[in-house]
Nucleic acid binder design. Structure first.
Lengths: 179, 179
DNA sequence: GAAGTTCTTGAACGGCGTGCAAGATAAGGT
DNA sequence: ACCTTATCTTGCACGCCGTTCAAGAACTTC
């Protein structure tokens, strides 16, 4: 009884599909990207995708996981910069995938898998932002509420284009008066 | 040369379609609502919708316009209440249509009609919130930035469920420190 | 009635996500 | 060397979607 064929293939092929899906989802958005298009870009058949992923949502979650992993890798070397600059960096980074941001919010209500990813992402984002605000001098009693406001501010900046100066103004208001 | 058949029908029928579309869009969201379902609920054929509206997006905009008109009608009698309560009322009101909120953000990038409605809505919202903040004592120089932060806060509260007390905390931060 | 406009429908198209049964590929056991 | 078995790939089909177009029905005016 042979246990497997080529244990390597699984990861490689699925990574190729995720790569193709990542660029198409990012460029065209979730709804306008078809599995047929992803399959063609990855050089496989549509149905092959179904061997590696349960459905379109599961593939989308895999894309999100990959982007999050890559994004976290770039966070390392900016810990010592001013907190506003850190947030602006995050805004710039996420802005490249603004179509995915709105897609996540739209799909979370219907897809448990995407909803779970969304909750996990916010838990992580809340933790990181709370640390930033704490080291920026926000008193402990205010960190929770200001963290939520900060997350809303970042999300707002993602979905509505604003000049750099006004982006900075909005972010500064998140800690203003907190000393 | 007969000029028209029954000038009344146009508005009545289109209003019936919009009514059916409003409830279905609100309950199921944009993507999960089919024109066939709307047509059935309105007692017409799918293709009849195309006589009154150019496409699904145009019908959606008509739904948004109707909801906005109804919503503005309820705003009148709360001008003298505290500004936080006013915003919480808006949050409650919009929360009933949270699926439409995410849908608008997701569709605006692809549909010029929806994008135009979105911009118009924000122009209106900015004006109203700016008035509220001004009469709440925010200095003129800070009104613009705090208005934007306030809009982001409201949108955030729409898309992420929070206990009432924390909703109030977040909103209060929007003017805190402004005197 | 005939003409002409307004509204409604039937039939069809291409594309979508997805399921299922058959086929290819390569490993292990004998 | 074969045959079994697990892994992977594909072909084919289904039902639903938004949208189009040409044909028909309903009604107003002449």
């Amino acid at each position: 009884m042979p246990r497997n064929r080529r244990p390597r293939d699984r990861e490689e092929k699925s990574a190729e599909i995720v790569a193709a899906a990542t660029s198409l989802f990012s460029e065209e958005g979730y709804e306008k990207t078809s599995l047929a298009g992803i399959a063609a870009a990855a050089g496989v058949t549509t149905n092959t995708i179904y061997w590696y992923f349960q459905d379109k949502d599961a593939l989308f979650v895999a894309v999100l996981d990959g982007l999050l992993r890559d994004g976290l890798a770039g966070v390392e070397d900016l810990e010592d910069r001013p907190w506003v600059e850190q947030l602006l960096w995050v805004v710039d980074e996420l802005r490249r995938f603004d179509k995915l941001v709105t897609a996540v919010h739209a799909l979370a209500a219907d897809s448990p898998a995407i909803d779970a990813w969304h909750e996990g992402f916010h838990a992580l984002a809340d933790t990181m932002l709370a640390e930033i605000l704490t080291s920026a001098g926000v008193p402990e009693a205010q960190v929770a509420a200001r963290t939520r406001l900060g997350v809303f501010a970042v999300e707002g900046l993602l979905m509505h284009e604003l000049p750099r100066a006004e982006q900075r103004q909005v972010l500064e208001l998140v800690v203003e008066g907190a000393r």
